[in-house]
Nucleic acid binder design. Structure first.
Length: 848
RNA sequence: GGCCCCGUGGCGGAACUGGUAGACGCAACGGACUUAAAAUCCGUAGCCCCGGAAGGGGCGUGCCCGUUCGAGUCGGGCCGGGGCCACCA
């Protein structure tokens, strides 16, 4: 019999599925719905192993749900705006649009070769005018609803990518794409008012039960809620300054007030004081880079002003401008209580300010409780604090708040770390922000009838700056309000805006409006979203915000876009470095006798640790090459095998070979089994080997179903191997009908994972229809539960043997059976058992 | 610095709410088939000790302690690895 020809088979079945439109999904169905979505790719031009893993998992789930009788939506699109297209344009002189669409065409073919059960009729790219015109409309609607505003702010400027970035896109002080240290610039930019939903985005996390705990925690920390008191100090110059504190209980321990260098008062003072101006400039220069923060010493500049203590106006606190106070958090000003805050302590030690403990641990006497190098932040009783003395921290917080509120000097407040989402990008390959700047009218939205604001066909990438800005005609338009000459906004949207609502567009890609209310009511939320953990905050937070915005505008009835989230691990491989310290590609290296050498040479190569496949480390394996060699089913099976899906997986050629052998083995098992009875033959009551085979098959159905429901693909794979091992074609005692049942179950179970092989085998078993149309098999519960159970017998907790007993054997009989074992009596050594623990159907433990 | 996660054979990993640790796969080894190789099939395999063998015994889930008839699983303390955030008042 011929070996399985994956290339031909896969091509054939892909054509059959396409021709019969198997995966085109209707929005009108009586079946229960299931929306399965994987994070859509950036069209770089090539799929990589990460895509293969991600899309395989989603595809298995989509096919599995489909077989279970769901109406499944499983679409695909392209996150197509972004800098790589601009870089290609600059380097190769191509048009970014043409480059992008060519990449999409190439990647679509590669994805199709994977045999994904995708409804390609819903495909779109975010750079399609038909998509971004809706986004422009949404931008204007968000603007009118008060969810978009323009403001001047200190923003993160990425000097390499030549654009500003949102807070979420600055990782360790560096731009998320370029890795360049970001600079601070004061610019006027567009913001989405995500902070409107700070509280809701936080509290709703608790209800996202099918999200990984880790992601919820990361979002929680990012939103960063803190409760405290905002109150004001009267200054010696007659002004006041607002501060925020989560520890108002420590107010009597205050020894200074500190302003952020960016605080308006600090800036005003700096205007009249050169040395202060120099200090402020120095603080800004050092910036927020990680190393800078770690090593930066607390520095301050004494403004000469003093602040009156709110409860003791005679007590005057010096007012500093300090480098460690952030304008972006709270009010940009603090009171310093060195005894109970480490930063304040360091600052106080440096400038020789008083350190007065006001919270004393329960077990220490107030008189001899001192502060050394460590601030005390634990619980205790208030001391040195007049009317607060003796109170707990919590009671003192409440009392301070009560008194300051009563005096009209302050109020309880909640602050968030989360900042509004800065979406302006000074880049040409993005969705144009549909606003016009008019000298008389200010910023005015583009009229709806003038949408979309299309990008110009040609863009000049010479020189610095945004080509949309330097374009000869593009930005010149008349003001939509007064008709006088005006200028377009030349900034485009952050590409994370594009991906913040694409899942809603998939529900109905022909909708006249941005999204169809009816379609999203049917499909949203996404039942299972799958993607990388790297979007734990960025994309997933933006999408949650955007969905709330859509809800406010009446487009949806849900707040949460993704009911279930799964974050898959990365695909890793060893790294190699040559003697010059440069990275070497995997195909430049060969292994001989446990060592790595340059291919065909005697030059040894350094083997580095296994890391996520990446271009820069050259440790990637091209999926194309693997599909060429073994076919899509093999690479899919590899991605599902062995490693739990949330963990990083190590690519290995041996593993891939093993998968390929299994593909062949299944094919042999099915096609080389002669004289099976016809379809639908009756199964007579089985016993012996054939009963065991029936049991194995039905147990596999039960186990694989359970594992796929829980996305435990690696366990499902192991169950399938176990079933394949149990099928012994040569055993003539097993009737053909039993063998047929086992083989059919095997084929149906591999269906979602190795769909092409399954179709070939299904056909070979005599079926006219397709596996994709066959219902998921049902396990016979009588066959899943066995009559006899092997029970462990222990003496003093140590295993001494096993007994096979009928299910449900009573304690007495189980005990008797256990005690009759030779190994048990030997272990007892003539001593009578003191106690016998019997857990029915589980274990017998004899205690002496 | 704060918060969180993870330590099981040579490797990836399995073990339901405490109940036979190592399923399944990879790699390895022995054998069969073959002129040979590939492919395939059968078999072995946590570690150590006793025995010619059949077999028997001990130790084992990072380390220590505890709870329990019984701990990979629960609690406490260490050690090691990883992640996220990071001067957040």
């Amino acid at each position: 019999m011929a070996r399985y020809n994956a290339r031909e088979s896969e091509k054939h079945w892909q054509a059959v599925w396409a021709e019969r439109q198997c995966f085109v999904t209707s929005n009108d169905s009586t079946k229960p719905k299931c929306y399965v979505l994987e994070m859509f790719p950036y069209p770089s031009g090539r799929i990589h192993m990460g895509h293969v893993r991600n899309y395989t998992m989603g595809d298995v789930l989509a096919r599995f749900r489909r077989a279970q009788g769901y109406n499944v939506l499983h679409p695909m699109g392209w996150d197509a705006f972004g800098l790589p297209a601009e870089n290609a344009a600059r380097e190769k002189g191509v048009n970014p649009r043409e480059w992008t669409y060519a990449n999409i065409a190439a990647m679509r073919e590669e994805l199709k070769r994977m045999g994904l059960a995708i409804d390609w009729s819903r495909e779109f790219a975010t750079c399609d005018p038909d998509y971004y015109k809706h986004q422009q409309r949404l931008f204007i609607e968000f603007y009118k609803a008060g969810l978009v505003y323009r403001a001047e702010a200190n923003v993160n400027w990425d000097p390499v990518d030549g654009t500003v970035l949102a807070n979420e896109q600055v990782i360790e002080g560096k731009g998320w794409r370029s890795g360049a240290p970001v600079e601070r610039r004061k610019l006027s930019q567009w913001f989405f008012k995500i902070t409107d939903y700070a509280d809701d985005l936080l509290t709703a996390l608790d209800r996202l039960e099918r999200w990984p705990e880790k992601v919820r925690l990361m979002q929680k920390n990012w939103i960063g809620r803190s409760e405290g008191l905002r109150f004001s100090f009267d200054l010696s110059d007659g002004e006041t300054v607002d501060v925020f504190s989560t520890r108002p209980d420590t107010l009597f321990g205050a020894s200074f007030v500190a302003l952020s260098p960016d605080h308006p008062l600090a800036e005003r003072l700096a205007n009249q004081n050169e040395r202060l101006a120099a200090f402020v400039a120095e603080c800004r220069r050092v910036g927020t880079a990680e190393e800078a923060i770690e090593t930066a010493e607390k520095e301050g500049y004494d403004t000469g002003l003093t602040a009156a203590h709110p409860f003791d106006p005679h007590r005057k606190l010096p007012v500093y401008v300090a480098n460690f106070v952030l304008m972006a958090y709270g009010t940009g000003a603090i009171f310093g209580c060195p005894a109970h805050d480490q930063r304040d302590l360091e600052f106080a030690r440096k400038y020789d300010l008083p350190v007065l403990p006001v919270v004393v641990p329960e077990d220490a006497a107030a008189a001899n409780f001192g502060i050394g190098r460590e601030a005390y932040i634990g619980p205790g009783r208030l001391a040195n604090s007049r009317f607060l003395d003796g109170m707990s921290v919590e009671a003192a917080k409440a009392e301070v708040a009560r008194r300051l509120e009563a005096a009209g000097k302050g109020e309880r407040a909640v602050h968030y770390r989360l900042r509004d989402w800065l979406v302006s990008r000074q880049r040409p390959w993005g969705c144009p922000i549909p606003m016009v700047r008019c000298v008389t009218c200010g910023f005015v939205p583009v009229r709806e009838s003038d949408l979309p604001v299309l990008l110009p066909d040609e863009l000049e990438f010479r020189g610095a700056g945004n080509p949309l800005d330097s374009h000869s005609s593009w930005k010149h338009v008349d003001c939509p309000q007064c008709g006088r000459p005006a200028q377009r906004e030349t900034d485009t949207c952050d590409t994370f805006v594009d991906s913040a609502w694409y899942f809603a567009r998939f529900c109905d890609t022909h909708s006249e409006g941005p999204v169809s209310r009816k379609a999203v009511e049917y499909w949203l939320p996404v039942d299972q979203y799958i993607g990388g953990i790297e979007h734990a905050i960025l994309h997933l937070l933006y999408a949650r915000f955007f969905t709330r915005g859509l809800h406010r505008l009446g487009y949806t009835n849900v707040d949460e876009p993704f009911a279930g989230l799964f974050t898959q691990g990365m695909v890793c491989h060893e790294t190699y470095k040559g003697q010059d310290g440069q990275w070497l590609a995997v195909d430049e290296v060969e292994k001989r006798g446990g060592k790595a050498y340059l291919k065909g040479m005697d030059v040894e190569v350094t083997v580095g640790r296994s890391e996520a496949m990446s271009k820069s480390k050259k440790n990637g394996i091209a999926p194309e090459a693997i599909i060429d060699a073994y076919g899509a089913d093999t690479i899919r099976w590899f991605m599902l095998s062995d490693t739990p899906p949330e963990r990083d997986i190590e690519w290995s050629n041996e593993g891939a070979e093993g998968c390929w052998r299994f593909v062949q083995r299944i094919h042999r098992l099915v096609t080389e089994t002669a004289d099976l009875p016809p379809l639908g033959s009756r199964l007579d009551s089985a016993e012996g080997a054939s009963l065991e085979l029936r049991r194995s098959a039905h147990r596999a159905v039960a186990a694989v179903t359970e594992d796929l429901e829980a996305l435990r693909f690696n366990r499902a794979v192991a169950q399938i191997y176990t079933l394949a091992n149990a099928i012994n074609v040569a055993d003539k005692s097993v009737p053909g009908a039993v063998l047929r049942e086992a083989l059919e179950i095997l084929v149906l179970l591999i269906g979602p994972m190795m769909p092409h092989l399954a179709e070939t085998c299904w056909h070979s078993l005599g079926h006219e229809g397709l596996v994709v149309d066959a219902p998921w098999p049902k396990a016979d519960s009588d066959l899943v539960r066995s009559e006899n159970i092997r029970i462990a017998v222990q003496v003093n907790g140590k295993l001494r043997g096993t007994v096979d007993l009928p299910r449900g054997t009573d304690k007495e009989s189980a005990e008797a059976a256990a005690l009759s074992l030779d190994t048990v009596s030997r272990a007892l050594d003539g001593k009578p058992p003191r106690r016998v623990i019997v857990v029915p159907d589980r274990i017998v433990n004899v205690v002496v």
